[in-house]
Design a protein around this nucleic acid. Structure first.
Lengths: 199, 199
DNA sequence: ACCATTTATTAAAGTAGTTGAATATTTACC
DNA sequence: GGTAAATATTCAACTACTTTAATAAATGGT
């Protein structure tokens, strides 16, 4: 995928929520940097301060934290047409607790913190755009919290399969287990049980 | 607390993020309805469609869902100077899964969905205000999810006590247990253990 | 200030999910 | 296409948390 196609994808994504003039589009695009990542390469390393909002043009990434026992916990997955960042670090400009790693060779468009601030100034429609984006992110998080506090591991796995079948098929099972708050061993057992039931 | 004081509190809250002219303030205030609630009264009943964003002037409320086994699960608490709604139902105008109940006699200022849309049109600074609000809400949710997938029940309780000591002291323990994703019995046992250790 | 109702505690038996360790299977990459 | 490395499975022992039920304590309304 070339640069123009990337911009096209992002502009289309933005156009779902706000309308921009040609000049506004050009200004927006002029703020973007693009970055390619190999599989297993970091987009953000814990300890570094997060500098970008990242829009994924192609590929698949995960964000995760490493706890004091060196165990990893997956916070989010992100694929084409989604955003990923450590918003906390980006907003406060403090070192990130979170790492972001490419699970596949990936291509992202990056919007630097200062660029984002200029964007809000020059094109206030982006306030609206990110309001809607964060609003939707908040809703998704709400649903996830609800799943977590009110459903068993088996139910959470089923719900994920229903809601994000492509992601479930795309990421290593151990990361999915981590995202869902269970061990890979237990997730494997759940799959085993389900397979048995179908016969 | 009288009407003027309520408006003052909300305007002060808004002023933390955006600046408004006197006319804008007056327009904003003109859109508000105020509502008093008794203890245990519903602000929103599951099955009804949510019509308002609610700003809490005084009191304390919880939002919760009732699952198919009639068990309740607490999603959020909200006290003075916070907002509460079922954003999903409000945005999609579909019947709410969520109920919101006053845990204390409470006073809220309500902003109707249509009024909110007009507000965005007439005073675009509110796009910014709600972007920041949702951004912060998203961050808080992120932290909560992290707690849930990576910490034990005891750790989650400790973290809550540290982060929201006043709320922990203010709401019935069983709702706190529900919010934290554990049974009231187990929370009681945790408290028991902690009390033992202090001696 | 009292009484009814709600909320918290305690104990004990049961279950969902974890841990560790060994084996099997899949995946990536030269 | 073969091989090392990463991921998934299986089993068994263990523990964090739940469930039920009965008792105690706290709370709020009149």
């Amino acid at each position: 995928m070339d640069q123009q196609d990337s911009y096209g994808l992002l502009l289309q994504h933005v156009a779902r929520h706000i309308q921009l003039t040609t000049e506004e589009q050009q200004y927006f695009v002029s703020l973007l940097k693009s970055r390619r990542l190999q599989r297993r390469q970091w987009l953000l390393q814990a300890g570094d301060t997060c500098r970008y909002e990242n829009f994924i043009v192609e590929g698949c990434l995960r964000s995760y934290i490493t706890d004091r026992n060196d165990a990893e916990h997956v916070l989010h997955f992100a694929v084409e047409d989604w955003w990923i960042t450590d918003l906390e670090s980006l907003l406060t400009q403090t070192p990130s607790q979170v790492s972001i790693e490419a699970l596949e060779p990936s291509l992202v468009l990056q919007l630097e913190r200062d660029a984002l601030q200029s964007l809000y100034q020059r094109v206030p429609a982006f306030e609206r755009f990110f309001r809607i984006l964060h609003q939707n992110a908040y809703l998704a998080q709400n649903r996830r919290i609800l799943q977590n506090i009110s459903h068993t591991a088996a139910e959470r796995y089923d719900a994920f399969l229903r809601q994000y079948p492509t992601i479930a098929a795309r990421v290593p099972q151990k990361y999915l287990a981590s995202y869902l708050g269970m061990t890979p061993v237990f997730l494997s057992q759940l799959r085993q049980q389900k397979a048995g039931k179908l016969k």
